[in-house]
Simulated scan of single mutants.
Amino acid sequence: MPAILLAGPAAEPITLAEAKTYLRVDHDAEDALIASLITAARATVEALTRRALIDQNWRIVRDAWPASGLIPVPVNPLREILAVHVVDAGGAEVAVPADAFTADTARLPGLIRVGRGGVPAPGRALAGIAIDIVAGHGASADHVPSPLVEAVRVVLAHFYEHRDVPGPGAAFPARLDALVAPFRVTRL
Rank of each mutant, 00 (worst) to 15 (best):
residue 27 H to F: 11
residue 44 T to W: 09
residue 92 A to Q: 14
residue 119 V to H: 02
residue 132 D to Y: 01
residue 2 P to E: 14
residue 184 R to C: 00
residue 134 V to G: 00
residue 4 I to G: 08
residue 57 N to V: 12
residue 97 P to V: 03
residue 89 A to G: 10
residue 148 L to K: 05
residue 164 D to A: 13
residue 103 A to M: 04
residue 74 P to Q: 12
residue 56 Q to A: 09
residue 33 L to S: 08
residue 30 E to V: 09
residue 147 P to H: 05
residue 91 G to E: 09
residue 93 E to V: 00
residue 34 I to K: 05
residue 109 P to Y: 11
residue 71 I to M: 13
residue 172 F to I: 05
residue 12 E to Y: 08
residue 40 A to G: 03
residue 104 D to Y: 06
residue 121 A to Q: 14
residue 68 S to D: 13
residue 27 H to A: 09
residue 129 I to Y: 06
residue 69 G to Q: 05
residue 156 L to F: 09
residue 43 A to G: 12
residue 14 I to G: 05
residue 84 V to I: 03
residue 4 I to F: 15
residue 106 A to K: 14
residue 108 L to R: 10
residue 105 T to M: 07
residue 26 D to W: 11
residue 125 A to V: 11
residue 111 L to H: 14
residue 188 L to D: 15
residue 157 A to R: 15
residue 64 A to G: 04
residue 137 H to E: 12
residue 140 S to Q: 08
residue 146 S to I: 11
residue 42 R to A: 09
residue 168 P to Y: 00
residue 142 D to L: 11
residue 37 L to P: 00
residue 27 H to N: 14
residue 36 S to Y: 09
residue 84 V to N: 01
residue 54 I to M: 07
residue 112 I to V: 10
residue 76 N to R: 09
residue 61 V to R: 14
residue 14 I to V: 15
residue 131 I to Q: 04
residue 26 D to V: 10
residue 10 A to V: 11
residue 53 L to Q: 09
residue 99 D to W: 05
residue 173 P to L: 01
residue 131 I to V: 12
residue 6 L to I: 14
residue 92 A to H: 13
residue 113 R to L: 12
residue 166 P to M: 10
residue 147 P to L: 00
residue 66 P to W: 03
residue 23 L to M: 05
residue 138 G to D: 01
residue 66 P to Q: 01
residue 74 P to Y: 11
residue 74 P to D: 11
residue 68 S to I: 07
residue 16 L to T: 07
residue 75 V to W: 03
residue 176 L to H: 08
residue 16 L to S: 02
residue 146 S to P: 09
residue 59 R to P: 00
